[in-house]
Write a protein that binds this DNA or RNA. Structure first.
Lengths: 107, 107
DNA sequence: CGTGTAAGGAATTCTGACACG
DNA sequence: CGTGTAAGGAATTCTGACACG
């Protein structure tokens, strides 16, 4: 019935709204993009668009920054956990393929 | 872990994005508000903000309009189904209260 | 009734740069 | 390094109105 998880990922929020939602200045938000911590899409005319997932990511970044963590380190951590997620995903994908071929027999 | 259903209801999308998402013109979107078919919030400076739920509502409105249904009739239908939902909600609420008092005994 | 459009103004967003530290 | 700010321009949004039908 609903479109499910897509709401969280759809990039539809403008930078001004993101600023309100996160408490960060637009300057900060753009800077974190420059440091590759966040990846907004662009509208046809070049305006940044963010998702709710991006907003949450920015809130985490803000927390880290308050603890004195530098953007470089935050990026390292993000890449690390992304690799872990990728491994997990590939593992599940593989399990699915094995099941499809050798698991439940359909014919 | 996630914030759950709130993504769908949060009013964070500007009218330009809603226009892209629905294929409606801004004029149309504002007119449907005037006809009380849709209820955006306003930012501090007066800009309209819509939710994903609003976007879906607008898509339904657009479909109805294509079928030649007038805004007045669409509004009637909306009010009708809203009343039905309210009845259902009150019913469930009542059931919950009854269970809380006479159902599962906690002491 | 439903939608297009031109009008004028106000708010938004963008980029590149200088500043401080 | 991380963030503020002034700068100038382009795109966005708003309202109220006239138009057509």
């Amino acid at each position: 019935m609903t479109d499910g998880p897509s709401y969280k990922e759809r990039k539809v929020i403008t930078i001004g709204v993101v600023s309100e939602l996160t408490g960060l200045t637009e300057r900060q938000i753009r800077y974190y993009e420059e440091r590759k911590l966040i990846f907004p899409e662009r509208s046809p005319k070049g305006n940044r668009k963010y998702s709710f997932a991006d907003v949450e990511q920015l809130i985490e970044i803000a927390n880290k920054r308050e603890e004195g963590v530098q953007t470089f380190e935050i990026r390292q951590e993000m890449l690390k956990s992304k690799r872990a997620e990728d491994r997990k995903f590939r593992k599940e994908l593989l399990r699915g393929e094995i099941n499809a071929r050798f698991g439940i027999q359909k014919d």
